[in-house]
Simulated scan of single mutants.
Amino acid sequence: MPEHDPEQELGPKITSAFHDHAGVTGMQKSGLAREARRRVHRRRQAWSVAAGAVLVAVVGGGVWGLAGSESPVASSHSDAGSAAAAGTAKSNQGIVGPREQTVCPSAPAIQQAAGPNALPAGTGLELSTPVTGLTACRYRMSDGTVLGQQSFNASVAQQVVDAIKVLPERNPALPVFKCAPQTAKPGEAIVLRFSTADGVREIWVEYDGCESPGFFTGTHTYGLYAAPLKLFMVGTVRPTGGTYLNALQGW
């Protein structure tokens, strides 16, 4: 009989043990792989949902932020709307609404006057007088038609007065014309009608024709400059041009 060799018996057992261990390890690896794939799939789903939320917020043009964000970001549409609203509010400062506007007379004294400084007695505004409002009336001089009008609050009215009273009698930068009488009269002019404690007082503004441009109170003449004009020449009160306006910068 051949001798009994213990190593021969151990060989198959060891081999079997290795096979069993390999099988267990393979199962473990397989399970880990499935778990890894499951986690990757869940992460992809989460990122897809987040990306969809961002896309909807951007397309909608609203204010959006991710969950937990402390600083929402405003879209460009919202910014543009806010800027436009702010610009409109700024441009309307000092302008009185339609219900509060004073109607411009249809037969103005300026149309019948002999000259730009011929205001009837008691009509002109002394620039030291406190004012509480202003209505600017633009007239066609041939028939007195109101070409435009706009009312302003007390703050703007006082700004106009303050801007006029510091002016010299004449603006030397404007040209001097020699015109025939039939072409000397202006085609249009503006009457500034100020509200005061004693009633309405006027300043006449001449900027067309070729007589004498400026601001006239009946007792004083002030040269035509852009600073006061910019305060009330808005909307329909703003002329498209004029003999002297065409030579004046910045109005």
Rank of each mutant, 00 (worst) to 15 (best):
E9Q: 11
L10P: 03
G11W: 12
G11A: 14
P12A: 05
P12F: 07
I14K: 03
I14Q: 03
I14Y: 03
S16V: 02
A17K: 08
A17R: 11
F18S: 11
F18P: 01
F18L: 14
F18D: 07
D20P: 02
D20G: 03
D20Y: 03
D20Q: 05
A22Q: 12
A22D: 09
A22G: 07
G23F: 03
G23D: 04
T25I: 11
T25H: 09
G26H: 06
M27P: 00
Q28C: 05
S30D: 07
S30K: 07
S30C: 02
G31P: 01
A33C: 05
R34Y: 04
E35K: 09
A36L: 13
A36R: 11
R37K: 12
R37Y: 05
R38N: 07
R38W: 03
R39N: 04
R39S: 04
V40Y: 08
V40I: 12
H41M: 12
H41Q: 13
R42E: 13
R43M: 11
R44F: 04
R44H: 08
R44E: 09
R44P: 00
R44A: 08
Q45L: 06
Q45C: 02
A46K: 12
W47D: 15
S48Q: 14
V49C: 14
V49F: 15
V49P: 08
A51K: 15
A51T: 15
G52S: 15
A53S: 13
V54F: 09
V56N: 06
V56A: 13
V56H: 10
V56C: 10
A57L: 03
A57E: 06
V58W: 02
V58T: 07
V58S: 03
V58L: 08
V59I: 06
V59N: 02
V59A: 06
G60E: 06
G61I: 00
G62L: 00
V63F: 01
V63N: 01
V63M: 02
V63A: 04
W64V: 00
W64A: 01
G65K: 13
G65P: 00
L66E: 08
L66H: 08
A67R: 12
S69L: 01
S69E: 04
E70W: 07
E70T: 10
S71L: 11
S71H: 13
S71I: 10
S71M: 12
S71F: 11
P72F: 01
P72K: 00
P72G: 00
V73Q: 14
V73D: 09
A74F: 08
S75N: 01
S75C: 02
S75Y: 01
S76L: 13
S76P: 06
S76N: 13
H77W: 15
H77T: 15
